[in-house]
Each structure stands twice: as C-alpha cells, then as structure tokens.
C-alpha cells in the first residue's frame, strides 16, 4: 500500500502513487563521506555522483518516471519526447543545487512533479529548497518530499510549498495527516500563506 499523502484543492488524503522513482545505482566510493559537506562540495566543485552511476542508471522504457537530477541533466536527450508528454519528473537530494536544474530546464512547469529526498529528519535544507522552487522559480505542480519523512515535519513542509508527502514506510501516513493542521494561524508569511499574521488579521492598535 502506498504511504503517500497528497494535498489536492486544500484537502489532504491518502493517495495512490502513479509515479515510478528511478534511483541511481550504488556508488563505488563511500558516498557518506561527502554527504552534507555542502561548503566543501561547493568550494572544491567535487561531485558526489559519478559519470558511471549516471550512465548505469536504468530508466524504465515506459510509464511516468521521476529521475535523479543528474540523470535528467546528463541524459536529457534520451528523455526529450517523454518530457514533452509530461511523463518525466525530477528528484534531487537536499545538498544538490537548484541552479543546476534551472540551467537545464528554465521552465520548471514542464515537469508535472519535483521530488526532494531528505536523508535525515533533521535536515532542514528541504524547507529552503521547497520555498525557492515555489517563490523564486515559480514551480506550480506537485512538489513531493520523500525519504525520512515523518509526521512532525509535515506542517513545515506544507508551509514550505510541498503538496505531497511520502511518509516513511514504517509509519502511519493516515495518522500523519492530522499534523498538517497543528497550528491554525501561524505568525509569519511563508509559501502556503505569504502574508504574515499582522497583515491577515486586524490585531487592534
């Protein structure tokens, strides 16, 4: 059974997942050494994903697929017609740079879905990535969080522009839905409600 929660027309409910997630093959090198070292990564220009991994990624011949950002960029020619048919989405990890995606695909709304992989609950980069995709790059379609996604992130993810949540397999997605409404009148403006509370309500003088 799918553990996917989806917000549609303002209502959150369990949903079937009609996308196939395409994964990179395991790296030869120990990838964890690099994971999260974003400063070093940026300063040294080192990539955590090898050419070999990208070349060896198995892309299903048919159906709706979400491909890794590196594959989307490096093997874009192979995907061209399927992208035009709305069969291709992109996923990225939290240390990957959105600029890399934009350079390849200026109009993100060609993509029916963008998914962001969060390896650890405590990795809050996902919130900035969601916010930038919505506010800076004008992405309007489904924005999904997957990976170490637990109910206590859901409220923040929703406020950061995410509209679907693949809750970790060992937890109840149904129960997680409740947390989307943990707070009724948040203080600050964010993606889902750009105006701060002092512009939404008359709080007296």
């Amino acid at each position: 059974m799918s553990n996917l929660v989806k917000i549609e027309n303002g209502v959150a409910a369990l949903a079937n997942d009609d996308w196939t997630l395409v994964k990179l093959p395991e790296a030869q090198t120990e990838e964890r050494i690099q994971a999260g070292k974003v400063v070093l990564f940026k300063l040294t220009g080192e990539s955590t994903i090898t050419e070999e991994q990208i070349a060896n990624t198995v892309i299903p011949a048919t159906g709706k697929i979400i491909v890794p950002l590196s594959v989307f960029v490096e093997r874009n020619a192979e995907l061209e017609s399927r992208i035009a048919n709305g069969e291709v989405g992109v996923w990225l990890a939290t240390h990957e740079l959105l600029e890399y995606l934009i350079q390849q695909q200026a109009d993100l709304n060609v993509l029916p879905i963008i998914a962001v992989f969060v390896e650890r609950f405590a990795d809050g980069r996902i919130f900035s990535i969601g916010t930038l995709l919505r506010t800076r790059y004008g992405f309007k379609n489904e924005l999904r969080a997957f990976g170490d996604v637990l109910r206590d992130q859901l409220f923040f993810l929703k406020r950061s522009g995410f509209t679907s949540f693949m809750v970790r397999q060992d937890r109840s997605a149904q129960e997680a839905i409740a947390s989307l409404n943990d707070f009724s009148k948040p203080y600050q403006g964010a993606v889902d409600e750009p105006q701060p509370v002092f512009k939404r309500y008359n709080r007296g003088v």
Partner: peptide, 14 residues
C-alpha cells in the same frame, strides 16, 4: 519572536 516562532523554513537549521 513572533516571526521566528515555528518559522517553517528555519525549523531544522544546521
């Protein structure tokens, strides 16, 4: 204080 309370983007900083 109000702005930073449950700020969604900055809920889990480094």
């Amino acid at each position: 204080r109000q702005w930073s309370t449950f700020h969604p983007e900055f809920a889990l900083l480094p």
